[in-house]
């Protein structure tokens, strides 16, 4: 590196105060509440709090459900993102708006909506129940469904963005080589948007892990079955706020660990 480029680097590295100040405030704003949790955590009784079997159950359930929900989102959301990004369906703008509705909908309302459709008396649920004996509310599958409903937009938006940014000429090249649309999608399109899919899946997983409203409304709240960490935290808050803080810490640590490791491996964001 010559002295000239080093000097230019230095000049570029100097950040304007106008940006640094709000950036620092933003960081403090995000970190202080977490710090509060850590400071007020019942460290002396923490191990006892966490040794209760219910905690392990809730954590295991949370991780399993969030992962399954992410899988559901990938299977359904990636094709949906493709449809939004690549098809020339009329009314695509409306479709895109509909897809993002779960983002703004209070999750509890989402849960109620799911009940109205998939509940035991729901529009579809009544047939699921009477024909196949399948009942989704109050089941672990219901938790996965509720989480997927709330988290899917994160994946769809992220993947759609990646698809729009991808160079379509590679798909044309594949077509001239005789590849069908499906073959092209699988072998060319998907790999080229893999970082977008990974980022979307991580967001999706994180959202699913913290999901509360839709889960408790649609899937209920029963230990080992449907009581995920956020539900356990909420219930604990009613009687023993210290236990709630301990549980939150566990959720916090697990999610930070998983997200940090995924980020490095998949997304390769600059550190």
């Amino acid at each position: 590196m010559t002295a000239g480029t080093r000097a230019r680097r230095g000049a570029r590295g100097r950040l304007p105060v106008v940006l640094v100040l709000p950036a620092a405030l933003g960081l403090v704003f995000l970190v202080i509440p977490l710090l509060g949790l850590v400071l007020r955590a019942p460290w002396s009784t923490l191990l006892d709090q966490l040794a209760q079997p219910e905690v392990g159950d809730a954590l295991r359930l949370s991780l399993v459900c969030a992962s399954l929900a992410t899988l559901v989102c990938l299977l359904l959301g990636v094709p949906l993102a493709w449809l939004l990004a690549r098809s020339d369906l009329p009314g695509r703008g409306v479709l895109r708006a509909l897809v993002t509705v779960p983002l703004v909908l209070p999750p509890v309302v989402g849960g109620v909506a799911l009940l109205l459709v998939l509940g035991r008396r729901g529009i579809l649920g009544q047939y699921l129940d009477s024909w196949f004996g399948v009942s989704l509310p109050f089941s672990t599958a219901g938790v996965v469904l509720a989480e997927a409903f709330v988290a899917m937009p994160f994946l769809v938006i992220s993947v759609e963005g990646a698809l729009r940014g991808a160079d379509r000429r590679y798909e044309e090249a594949a077509a001239t080589l005789g590849a069908s649309r499906w073959h092209t999608f699988r072998r060319v399109t998907l790999p080229s948007v893999a970082p977008g899919i990974a980022a979307g899946a991580v967001l999706c997983w994180a959202r699913a892990l913290g999901e509360f409203g839709a889960t408790i409304t649609f899937a209920g709240n029963f230990p080992g079955q449907t009581r995920t960490m956020p539900l356990a935290v909420y219930i604990a808050l009613e009687s023993a706020p210290e236990a709630a803080i301990a549980l939150s810490l566990v959720l916090l640590v697990v999610s930070v660990l998983v997200l940090a490791s995924l980020r490095e491996r998949w997304i390769g964001g600059p550190t």
Binding site: D167, R169, E172, A174, L177, G178, S180, R181, P191, S192
Partner: peptide
């Protein structure tokens, strides 16, 4: 459609699949 034509193309910037 292109995939059913017996036509090969060498593109200007080659468009080799990077992965």
């Amino acid at each position: 459609p292109p995939e059913r034509r017996s036509v090969g193309v060498v593109f200007q910037d080659y468009l080799l699949f990077r992965h």
